[in-house]
Amino acid sequence: MPADKLSLYLAHRAALVDYAAPIVGCRARAEDVVQEAWLRFDGREPDAQAIGHPVGYLYRIVRNLSLDLTRRLATERRQPDGDAVLAELPAETASPEREVAGIDELQLISEALAELPQRTRTAFEMHRLGGYTLQQVATALGVSVGLVHQLVHDALAHCSARLEQADG
């Protein structure tokens, strides 16, 4: 089977490079991508499930590697010295005072949410804490999306007002 893999790769190598070149922006990078694809394709563990369409599988590997390279290059262009900048950032640990203040704020927000009507609190918790869309919350509560938006807004305004009262 290894000879079959190699002959398959060699038969399609030029087409794979042609396929990758427009994605990565140059033939030299495309050559690197196709070489990496071959290493992954050849290094794949032989198992009971043979690949149904090995050429398609090889093209998929090339496509995925090409897109990964494109994303990585775009990130490096946006922040060429990103690793150095990250290394110089201070640790993201809060001081003990900030931790206590955060705990106090969470307690105030919890109390503020407990003061809300059940439907308002449920809409807020589902949307802001549970990650549900406004449409999903509206369906669950049997109300309109506009009403859910208003309920979430009311809950946010109430929590914000309570935090401001505590600061004042």
Rank of each mutant, 00 (worst) to 15 (best):
A28E: 09
A166Y: 07
Q135F: 12
I23T: 08
A91I: 06
A94G: 08
A48K: 04
R78P: 02
Y9V: 10
A48R: 07
T70K: 12
A123I: 10
E36A: 14
E76S: 02
A91P: 05
Q79M: 12
A101C: 02
S160L: 09
Q136Y: 03
Q150V: 13
V143Q: 07
Q107T: 14
L8A: 11
E125H: 09
R27G: 13
I23V: 13
A157Q: 08
T122V: 14
W38M: 04
L58C: 03
V62S: 00
A114M: 06
A74W: 09
M1F: 14
T75Y: 13
M1S: 15
T93G: 04
R71E: 00
D4H: 10
L129V: 15
G102M: 04
T120K: 00
A28M: 05
R72M: 02
Y57Q: 00
A166H: 10
R121H: 12
A14I: 03
L89T: 07
L116I: 08
I61N: 00
L108H: 13
D32T: 06
G52P: 01
A3S: 14
T93I: 06
R60T: 13
R13N: 12
E164S: 12
A74M: 07
Q165V: 11
Y132V: 06
G168H: 14
V148P: 02
Q49F: 15
V24Y: 06
G142D: 05
S160T: 09
V85T: 13
T139W: 11
A87P: 00
Y9T: 09
E125A: 14
Y9E: 00
R119L: 09
A155H: 10
T133G: 12
A21N: 02
E31M: 02
S95V: 04
G52C: 04
E92Q: 04
G142T: 10
A20D: 02
V34S: 03
P96Y: 07
R78Y: 11
A101S: 06
L67F: 14
D18V: 04
P117E: 15
P2K: 06
A74I: 03
A3L: 09
R128F: 06
E76I: 01
L58D: 00
Q136T: 07
H149C: 08
A14M: 01
A101W: 01
K5D: 10
D32H: 04
D154H: 14
L147Q: 13
Q135D: 08
H149W: 11
R44F: 15
H12M: 01
A114C: 04
T120R: 01
P96K: 01
R119Y: 09
L89V: 08
L73K: 04
V55I: 06
R13F: 14
T93N: 05
V137R: 05
S7R: 14
V148I: 11
E111F: 14
